[in-house]
């Protein structure tokens, strides 16, 4: 039993990390398709080994810490995001029986881990001791706090409907009807908040290349930068998996095996995120904040209220 778990852990680590690396190639190729160009197509068949080449490059780079940085925090920061995101995969139910820990507080665990990953960005920005990184870190802190609020609020819909924080219960509750139908508003809110959590365009303000050079990871290079980078892509995968689990019925689907359904649904969202990046400009921080607090938060609250009322009515 322990052996099986161990194998599962190692396998999961291997697969998620490989997928995240490979996703960088997918993103670059897809962006290229949408932008009338080729993208990386030289390394391996169709350029599929590009991610490997990138990894080798990052690993063999000088492991450099700027002399002005706060050394220990600077080194720890990128590890936090990677660990936090990888930990979250523990609770993702890929298929019936195919999950590592069926926690009864699964969803709360996910929220907790995603809150932890914010520390990575903020500490990284702070420890770099550079003005660009600091501004990026500040932006990250503001953005994450804002969007985490209704990230949490929007997932309460499925919780209320399923009556449980356990993700398998939530998936099982969607046997008849995916939660995306009764919880459409919640789904949209979660999607937006999730993109903001993974700091991807249009929510990439913490790194906003044209404004802050590279934002919070301006001073990072080599594999430490690589960890932020992989952390972001892992975050994307995790987010897609969570949306699938919470709103799209997880592994449920006809004909195909459950795991295939799960992967298909998740891939759809991965492609959607990449498409978002290809098409949208970036709002300003104050616009982002007021959109969060003034539009999304009231909506999330209203959604929660309405869902609660319906559940109460049906229960009573």
């Amino acid at each position: 039993m322990i052996l099986r778990t161990l194998i599962f852990i190692v396998g999961l680590l291997f697969i998620t990390l490989t997928l995240a690396g490979w996703l960088t190639w997918v993103e670059r190729r897809l962006l290229a398709v949408w932008q009338d160009r080729l993208g990386p197509n030289r390394v391996g068949p169709f350029g599929t080994l590009q991610a490997l080449a990138d990894a080798i490059k990052l690993f063999t780079k000088e492991d450099w810490v700027p002399p002005f940085a706060d050394k220990s925090v600077f080194v720890i920061a990128p590890a936090i995001i990677l660990i936090a995101v990888l930990m979250s995969f523990v609770i993702v139910p890929f298929a019936p029986g195919l999950l590592l820990a069926n926690l009864n507080i699964g969803l709360l665990f996910f929220l907790a881990m995603s809150s932890l990953s914010v520390y990575s960005i903020v500490l990284g920005g702070w420890a770099s001791n550079s003005k660009y990184a600091l501004l990026g870190g500040l932006r990250a802190a503001a953005q994450m706090i804002t969007y985490e609020v209704f990230l949490g609020l929007s997932v309460m819909g499925p919780v209320l409907l399923a009556g449980s924080f356990r993700l398998t219960d939530i998936v099982e509750a969607q046997q008849e009807l995916w939660f995306v139908v009764p919880q459409f508003l919640g789904f949209v809110l979660f999607l937006i908040a999730g993109v903001a959590e993974t700091r991807r365009l249009p929510f990439d303000l913490p790194e906003a290349e044209t404004e802050l050079a590279a934002g919070f990871h301006t001073e990072y290079s080599g594999m430490k930068f690589g960890m932020f980078f992989i952390g972001e892509y892992l975050g994307m995968i995790l987010l897609s998996a969570m949306i699938t689990t919470l709103y799209l019925g997880g592994w449920h689907g006809p004909f195909l095996p459950p795991i295939v359904w799960f992967l298909l649904k998740s891939s759809f969202f991965l492609v959607l995120f990449i498409l978002l990046r290809a098409s949208l400009p970036r709002p300003r921080l104050d616009q982002l904040m007021s959109f969060g607090w003034k539009v999304l938060l009231p909506l999330a609250l209203a959604n929660l209220l309405a869902t609660g009322a319906v559940v109460l009515m049906r229960g009573g």
Binding site: Q35, T210, P281, R282
Partner: peptide, 16 residues
């Protein structure tokens, strides 16, 4: 300009 405000694609179309 589009890239400056965070839009990634138009720069490629325009350069094409």
């Amino acid at each position: 300009f589009a890239q400056d405000v965070g839009q990634l694609s138009p720069v490629f179309y325009a350069f094409n």
